[in-house]
Simulated assay, not measured.
Amino acid sequence: MGEGDIGGIGEFLQSRRARIKPADVGLPGLGRRRVPGLRREELAQLAGVSIDYYTRLERGRARNVSDAILDAIADVLRLDGIERQHLRDLARPGGTAPRPRVTSESRTARSQVRPGLARLLEMMDAVPACVMGRRTDILAYNAMADALYGFSAMPARHRNAARHTFLHPGVRTFYADWSDVAEEAVAFLHLDAGRHPHDPQLAALIGELSLESTTFRTLWARHPVRDKTYGTKRLHHPVVGDLELAYETLLLPGDADQCLVTYTPAAGSASEERLQLLASWQASTTPPVDTYDNADQAH
C-alpha cells in the first residue's frame, strides 16, 4: 500500500500472524517470543516464499503478487473467505493506474437512491428498512426505521452507522450487545477501506472516530474484517422497550455500493407486539421517508 492509503496490509497481516500459535502449524514453541503468534520468517517458510519477499509484501512494497502466493499465505493464516478477498484487495490496490479525481458531482451520483427504491421503502410500512451505502452512510430510510432509530432527530452527519455506534449519545444503552455492534461496524469499514484505499472521505471518518473513541482505536488496530449479511439486533427502545429483531442485508442489483437492510421480529413474539405498538406511535407522528447525499456533510 502506498503512503496515504487506508487499507493497511501490514496491520492486517500482523494481526493475523498474531492469531496463529506456532504449535498450531507444527512449529516448536522454543523459549520466549518477542511477538505473539508467528514470526515473519516462520510464515514465509510455511508459505514457501522468501523472507525478503514476504517482508516487502507486509510493508506494502510488493507488486504483481500472484494468486498462488496470496493463497499460500492465506492457508497458513487460516483466513476465511471474506479475509482472503480482503487480502487480495489490500495486495492489489489498483496498481499504478492514475487515481480518479473525486468531485462533489461524482460523489452525489454514487450516493443517490433510485426513486423506485425510495418508493419501495415508503410502502414497507410495517418493516423498519433503510439503504446503507459506502462508509456505512445511511442514504435513505422509511418511517418505521426512523421510529426505530430516530434518524430524523439526529444531526445529519450522524446518519452513518459507524458514527452512530461510536459517537451518538445513549447508544450503549440502545444496543444491548453494543460491543458486538461496534466490532461489526469496524469490520465493515475495514472491508470498505480495502476496496477503496484512496477515499478521502473514508480516511476522514476513520480519523474522526479514532480521535473521538478509544474503543474504535482499539478495534481498528485488531483489523476485524466482516461483511454485513444477516443476524440479530437486541435494542432497548425509549418508547416501547426491549426489541429483538432479525436483520437481513440485501445487495441491490445495479449498485454494488448500496444495500437494503430490513428488521423483522419473530412471529408471535413480544418484539412483534412492541413493533406494532411502535408502528401505531409512528403513525401519529408521520415522519417522512428521507433521502440525502452525505457527500456534502464530509469534513
Rank of each mutant, 00 (worst) to 15 (best):
L251Y: 07
G31N: 04
R99W: 06
L211S: 13
L252P: 01
I138P: 01
G268I: 07
G26Q: 00
S269A: 02
G60T: 05
A129N: 00
T249I: 08
S104W: 04
G31T: 04
R234L: 13
M144G: 00
A266N: 10
T165W: 02
E212I: 06
R195V: 10
L43Y: 01
A162R: 01
W220V: 07
R92G: 08
I206N: 06
D24M: 12
A176M: 09
G254F: 01
R16Y: 04
A153G: 08
M154T: 06
R84P: 06
Q85F: 02
Q276V: 11
S104L: 12
C259F: 04
G94C: 05
A143Q: 08
G10F: 08
A162M: 05
R101T: 13
R99F: 06
L277P: 01
G48E: 05
V239Y: 05
R114N: 02
K21M: 11
M154V: 09
A256M: 09
F216Q: 02
R61P: 04
V171A: 13
R78F: 02
E42H: 07
D89N: 15
E105K: 10
G60M: 09
C130P: 00
A246D: 10
G4P: 05
R274H: 05
L167V: 03
A193M: 13
F151Q: 05
P265A: 13
G94L: 07
E3M: 12
T229Q: 07
T215N: 08
G241L: 04
Y263Q: 00
I69F: 00
A204R: 08
L251A: 13
N294K: 08
W281R: 12
A256W: 05
E3N: 13
A295C: 09
P265H: 03
V261H: 01
I69Y: 00
R110C: 10
S50P: 03
R119D: 11
L27H: 01
R84M: 05
L252N: 01
G60C: 06
T165V: 12
R34M: 06
L30N: 12
S50D: 07
V49Y: 06
R88D: 07
F188I: 12
A126H: 11
K233G: 04
H190A: 09
L219W: 03
R195S: 12
A97Y: 02
Q14V: 13
L120N: 02
L87I: 12
P93T: 14
D89K: 09
A270W: 02
A283D: 12
T215S: 09
T218Q: 15
P22F: 00
I51Q: 15
R56P: 05
D180I: 14
G81N: 11
E208K: 07
A298L: 11
I138E: 00
T55Y: 00
T55M: 01
